[in-house]
Each structure stands twice: as C-alpha cells, then as structure tokens.
C-alpha cells in the first residue's frame, strides 16, 4: 500500500515508495525546517523573549512551534472549497486527503482555521496573538515559571488593549481569541498522536 504524508508542511502528500523511512523523514524535515526557523526568528522579536533563560526559550519553542504554525498557516485551509494547499503549492481536497489516510485532525484543523480567519484580525493582531500562543507559562519543562508568566501577562494585556482599540464594538473578540488557546492545545495533542503513529509505521 502506498504511503502518504498528509501534513501541509510537506511539499506534497505523495511519498516515493522506493525511499526508506529515514529518507522520507529527511525530505519532510527539509520541507518544514524553514517554517520552524521562521517561528524562532519570530520568537526572538517578541519583546522580553530573549531575556528568558535559554532553557525556557527552547522549552517554549519546542512545545509551541506546532501551535504557532497552525496559526500562521491557517490560510492554507480553504474552508469554502474544502482544500488544503501544501507547501509545494498544490491544492488537495479533503476527500483526496481522507483517501490518503488523513484523520479527524484534518477536520479539526479546518474548524480551527475557519473560526480564526472569521475573526478578521489584522496582521498586527494576529502577530500579537501568536506571541501569546508561544509564551505560555504552563508548558512542560519551564524552569522559571514566574518570568514566563510575567511576560505572558504583559503580552495578554497588550493583546486586549490592541483588540479593544481596534474593535470597540466587538468586545467578544478578545474572549474568543483566548478560547482558541485550549483549541490549539487539543490540536497539538492530536498532532503528537499522529506523529507517534507515523514513527511506529
């Protein structure tokens, strides 16, 4: 049976059956590494992030990179025509990806992307929200919880202030955004399970 890698961070879901598991992984890694580097560059620009310990910077990035990528690449999921655009530029329908073995994670990603995009956030708002997603004091392995918590609170206050200023008649937007955080955790957990399945196979 042909193997597929249905993650849009891949150039295409098709996998060369002649390649070994290691080669497939190497190729996939080449595809998603630039996106991960962009997340790190983004983190470096968050005021106060570089003041955290190196250990905590790495821990936050390890735990949150997937969630940041979900936010940044929400537009790859086209809710109207139910397609996903892979990094190679080609679009694949949900039905096609399902036939390739995509799981419920795909539907959950569509739901999340649709709700996030429907909030109609500006680039600045989306960027600040992404910083809030990354700087979460309850990630595992955080050494100095107080420092991360202080930065997290500063970022949340800045986000609330920005949203309130830009959307004076839509006070629910800030609440809706905060409610996206547990949704992202849930997607992160589902994704980790998928990775486990991938590794096992």
């Amino acid at each position: 049976r042909r193997m597929h890698l249905v993650c849009p961070m891949n150039t295409s879901p098709s996998v060369d059956p002649q390649k070994s598991g290691h080669e497939v992984w190497e190729e996939f890694s080449h595809s998603f590494t630039p996106a991960v580097r962009e997340v790190v560059e983004f983190a470096k620009k968050i005021p106060g992030f570089r003041d955290l310990s190196q250990h905590d910077q790495v821990s936050l990035l390890k735990a949150g990179t997937f969630e940041v990528l979900v936010v940044r690449f929400a537009s790859l999921f086209d809710v109207t025509d139910r397609t996903v655009t892979f990094l190679g530029g080609n679009k694949y329908s949900v039905d096609t990806l399902r036939s390739m073995g995509a799981s419920d994670l795909l539907n959950s990603m569509f739901d999340f992307s649709e709700k996030l995009i429907n909030l109609g956030l500006s680039e600045e708002e989306m960027s600040l929200f992404t910083a809030v997603v990354l700087v979460s004091a309850d990630r595992s392995g955080i050494e100095n919880v107080n420092s991360v918590e202080a930065l997290q609170e500063t970022l949340i206050r800045a986000l609330r202030s920005l949203i309130t200023r830009n959307h004076p008649n839509e006070s629910a937007i800030f609440t809706k955004l905060l409610l996206k955080l547990p949704d992202l955790r849930s997607l992160n957990n589902m994704h980790s399970e998928q990775l486990l399945a991938f590794k096992v196979h």
């Binding site: 991960v36 570089r50 910077q57």
Partner: peptide, 27 residues
C-alpha cells in the same frame, strides 16, 4: 512519546536557530 519535539529533531533546529542570537547576549 512525551517529547515529540525532540524525537522530530525540532529541538536541534530550534537550538541552532536560537544559537547565534544567544551567543551575542551579554552575561
């Protein structure tokens, strides 16, 4: 599988991307 980021090699990518910047930090 408590640490998928390490298993994926993500930690290595993250450390390398952070490194240059961290080396420049005054202690």
């Amino acid at each position: 599988f408590s640490d998928p980021a390490s298993n994926l090699g993500l930690e290595d990518i993250i450390r390398k991307a952070l490194m240059g910047n961290l080396e420049e930090r005054p202690e």
